[in-house]
Amino acid sequence: MPSRQAGPIGRVRRAKRAGRARRAGRVDRLAPFVLVAPAVLVVVLLRLWPLVLGINFSFTGDGELNGTAVGLDNYLALLDDPLFRTSLRNVGLLVLLLPIAVAIPGLLATFIHLKVPGHRVYRGVYFFPAVLSPVIVGAIFTLLLSFDGPLNAALGGLGLPPVDWLGDPDVAIFAVVGVHVWATFGMALVVFLAGFSTLDPSLLDAAKVDGASFVQTLRHVIVPGLTRTIQFVFVTTMIGMLTSMFGLLYVMTGGGPEGSTYLPEYYIWMQQGRFDRPALASAASTALFVAMLVVGLAQVAVLRRTGKED
């Protein structure tokens, strides 16, 4: 072997090998950084850097003040704008309506799991709206809910006065949220059904033997057994409500009537696209980002806690 050779030739070979080893060591040290570089670059260049630019942009002015720093003016303008306040109030309303949006797929999944007659059909039918685009759903319900539409005709048949579902500012937001829940609960239903498959059937049998009513079974067996699933559905439904109602709003109400169905997303779009105020839109985006960050952190906390329970 070369290392045993004495003399100048051996020394040169040793030196060469040491050089190779050093180079190999350097490559070994650098390789991980090089290998993660594309991912890091994509995240930094395409996500974080635009985010920083956007936040920075939200501290500049619009129109004639384009490019000049205006401090917190945009944020003060947001707080002063009744439309933005309405959009935040509507976010609060969505949070309040969240338990209903979770309870509906939960209850329906329970019925399917308890094998009510026709449960196979219901499983498919309930999921069906989840594959429709919000634009199609919105267009269909705009027709159904229009003042001279079929729903009001049915009410009239029952001797009830018509309701201006999308034209009454006190009703419209509930109509849109209702349609959103109808269109998206199929996904939550599937998650619930998956949760049910982890539920120990012997517990349900035991409850049945003990003569528990449906409500008692639900309260003492099903809900405690599905805690983690319910938490997961809560978080995902909340995020869905905050980020994917734009299409429905755009088609069904356009933010109206009287601006009563504005959500932050819609507000941002209006400021940027209609009023040509990109910096104000950036400020609103930053505000929405902070709200989403809070929801996201809450999600992480919830998932971590449920992870510990395993």
């Binding site: 229009s146 003042f147 001279d148 018509p162 579902w165 034209g167 009454d168 419209a172 009537p257």
Partner: peptide, 12 residues
């Protein structure tokens, strides 16, 4: 017409 606030000008 009834429900003017929920009727779209284009094209309802």
């Amino acid at each position: 017409n009834d429900g003017a606030n929920s009727t779209a000008m284009f094209n309802d």
